[in-house]
């Protein structure tokens, strides 16, 4: 049986010794699109940073294709990370390089391919995201949607088996967001890629997800299909998917203490 692209075991992580993620477990199958959802402050971004090797967990581990991400040296970890692709929310393109150079970067750094072949692959990847012909533009000359699509092209440059996307459709108009959703589905269907998408866009999540994982206050409170999440009886999940504001219990004494700076 093939090893899972990613297994998260008993992951606990946070900042300055304060846990934000509590004992999370997750496994993703080959060719599966998993959407991680949750409200603001639910720990989605921290969770993602742990998954992509940017933040050492306080406890637990993440394994990529059967190999521990945090139980190895820094150089070994970098080697493991070559096998995944990540498209950041802001694109995180190198501003001093052109679009073509950005997409070519992983190929130049990690392959022995000649310049001509790299150029062909770059054009193929840009064609895949609908940006063929934009090779010579600088990131500062691109729109938000184009930046995200170039980030996707760079993430898939080395044909990884697992790709992560952070808020791919956030801040985009509905047409561009829909195009990005189609692109994610295309990655799974035509390249057999496993994709982990972190988003809070419900429409997009329901359209692309094979499975939805809901994070709430650092805990995974739900993992299931779109139909299952819609049928969930959990009130917090219903509030999340129906966009219902939650009233926190109001304690007048505690509130007063906070106002005078005693708590």
């Amino acid at each position: 049986m093939a090893v899972s692209p990613i297994i998260v075991s008993d992951l606990m992580g946070g900042y300055n010794g304060t846990p934000v993620i509590h004992g999370c477990n997750m496994e993703i199958a080959h060719g599966e699109i998993v959407v991680i959802m949750g409200g603001s402050g639910s720990g989605k971004s921290t969770f993602l940073r742990h998954l992509i090797g940017l933040k050492e967990p306080m406890q637990g581990d993440v394994s990529l294709f059967g190999e521990s991400l945090y139980g190895v040296s820094e150089n070994e970890r970098l080697k493991l990370l070559k096998g995944i692709g990540v498209a950041f929310q802001s694109g995180a393109l190198l501003s001093s390089l052109t679009v073509g150079q950005n997409v070519a970067l992983p190929l130049v750094e990690h392959s022995d391919l000649d310049r001509e072949t790299i150029d062909i692959i770059v054009r193929m990847k840009l064609d895949f995201v609908g940006l063929l012909g934009k090779e010579d533009l600088l990131p500062s000359e691109l729109s938000g949607g184009m930046l995200k699509r170039v980030a996707v092209a760079r993430a898939i440059a080395l044909d990884p088996r697992l790709t992560f996307m952070d808020e791919p459709s956030a801040g985009l108009d509905p047409v561009v967001a829909a195009a990005l959703d189609e692109l994610i589905i295309k990655l799974r269907d035509s390249l057999g890629m496993s994709v982990v998408v972190v988003t809070h866009e419900l429409e997009s999540a329901f359209k692309i997800a094979d499975r939805i994982v809901v994070l709430d206050r650092g805990y995974i409170i739900f993992s299931g299909t779109v139909a299952e999440i819609k049928a969930s009886s959990n009130q917090r999940i219903q509030n999340l998917i129906n966009r219902v504001a939650e009233d926190e219990e109001f304690d007048p004494e505690a509130h007063l203490r906070r106002l005078v700076g005693e708590a």
């Binding site: 992509i52 090797g53 990540v86 190198l94």
Partner: peptide
């Protein structure tokens, strides 16, 4: 986020 991007590219 360019430094993070380099790291996750294995660079």
């Amino acid at each position: 986020g360019e430094i993070d991007a380099l790291t996750v590219m294995g660079i």
